Computed example of a mutant assay.
Amino acid sequence: MAEETGGPASENYRTPRPFDLGQMNSARVYDYLLGGKDNQEIDRDVAGQMLFSAPEIKTVAWFCRSFALKAVEMAADAGVRQFLDLGSGIPSSPNVHEVAKKIDPSARVVYVDYDPVVHAHCDALLAKPHDVTALLGDIRRPHEILGQLKNRTLIDLNEPVVITLIGVLHYVMDDEHPADIIAAFRDQLAPGSYLAITHGSLASAPEVLQVLAGNKDTSAQVSFRSAAQTETFLAGFELLEPGVVPVQQWLRPDLPETRMVMDAAIGRKP
């Protein structure tokens, strides 16, 4: 595995500055797209510019949200009681712990994000639920996150865990080794664990990819990949049907195609 430095890009222009309200924040932009209130004028301006050229971005955000909750519900129904939401973003209801605890009140949920703004929101909004915790951690440093989980006995890695990575991996550049990051978590998971991901697809329309390219050199810089590339991230997992497909195909057959394509997949560790 590559050394967990995050690289120069990670330490400079692509790491959020804590509580800088004059800087666009990708978590707050996503919160706005989901109809949340925890965003600033600059975030709404950035979202508005994106929506002007690619209005379906908001629809795709909701599709991804619905997929995440479906994955949690499916795994909880299968008996998994531990959930690790990596790159969780600002909490909005219903969230992972609400879905999981509705099925089993004893479910344990850990939210992880590298953004201090997100962590502050999580600490404030998730203070009351039992067995729900927020961690400040960067997925580009997986062993640091795993160390926190073990040292604080938040998750028992000897028992199955559900990991959700919703709209996160396309923020990890190739030189930050996304496959190695997933492998670091996978190797510590017990059999019967699940991984659910969504990832921006190169099958998106060229005009959508051009809009997203405008976020280069910011914390919202993305690297969309092909479905085949996304599938490699699930190496070591049994890929569940329908496989790596546009996210709406995981939800309902009557949902429309979108120019912005977000692939989704769920894998189970044998």
Rank of each mutant, 00 (worst) to 15 (best):
D20G: 04
H177W: 06
S219I: 15
R252P: 00
A68N: 14
F63Y: 15
A183C: 01
R141T: 13
V247L: 02
T230S: 11
D45H: 11
R141Y: 04
C64G: 15
Y194N: 03
V172H: 08
W62C: 04
A264Q: 07
A205T: 06
L251Q: 02
M260D: 01
E98V: 11
A71H: 07
G200K: 04
S92D: 09
P206H: 01
V172W: 02
I42M: 06
S223L: 12
A127L: 09
T230G: 07
K37Q: 14
M74I: 11
V96G: 01
M262S: 15
G267R: 00
F63A: 05
S223V: 14
I145N: 03
T59P: 02
L202Q: 13
A78Y: 10
V211M: 07
A127D: 10
M24C: 05
I182Q: 02
Q23N: 09
R259I: 01
L189G: 03
K269Y: 07
L135V: 05
G267W: 03
K37V: 12
V244Q: 05
L157P: 11
V117C: 03
P91V: 09
V161G: 09
P178T: 05
R141S: 12
G7C: 06
G87C: 06
T164E: 05
G89P: 10
K216F: 11
V172K: 10
M262D: 06
D174W: 03
N158Y: 08
I145Y: 00
D43C: 09
A47D: 03
R141D: 03
Q229E: 15
L209K: 12
A228S: 13
V208N: 06
E144L: 12
A228P: 00
R140S: 08
M173G: 14
M24Q: 07
P256A: 01
A179C: 01
Q221M: 14
K101I: 11
S10N: 14
P8H: 13
L240P: 06
S92M: 12
V60F: 04
A264Y: 00
P270S: 12
P256L: 00
G267L: 07
V46A: 15
S26F: 09
L149E: 02
G147D: 10
V110F: 04
L234M: 09
C122W: 04
M173Q: 15
A75H: 12
S10L: 10
V247Y: 01
A228E: 15
K102L: 11
A100H: 04
R28I: 10
K37W: 03
R252A: 15
I197H: 02
L69R: 13
Y111V: 04
T164P: 10
Y32D: 08
S88C: 15
K128S: 14
S219R: 05
T5S: 14
D85A: 06
L165R: 08
L234W: 00
K37S: 13
G137V: 07
L125Y: 05
L251N: 02
T15L: 12
D104C: 11
T164G: 07
H97L: 12
M74Q: 15
D254K: 01
V72W: 10
Q82T: 10
S53M: 08
K216Q: 14
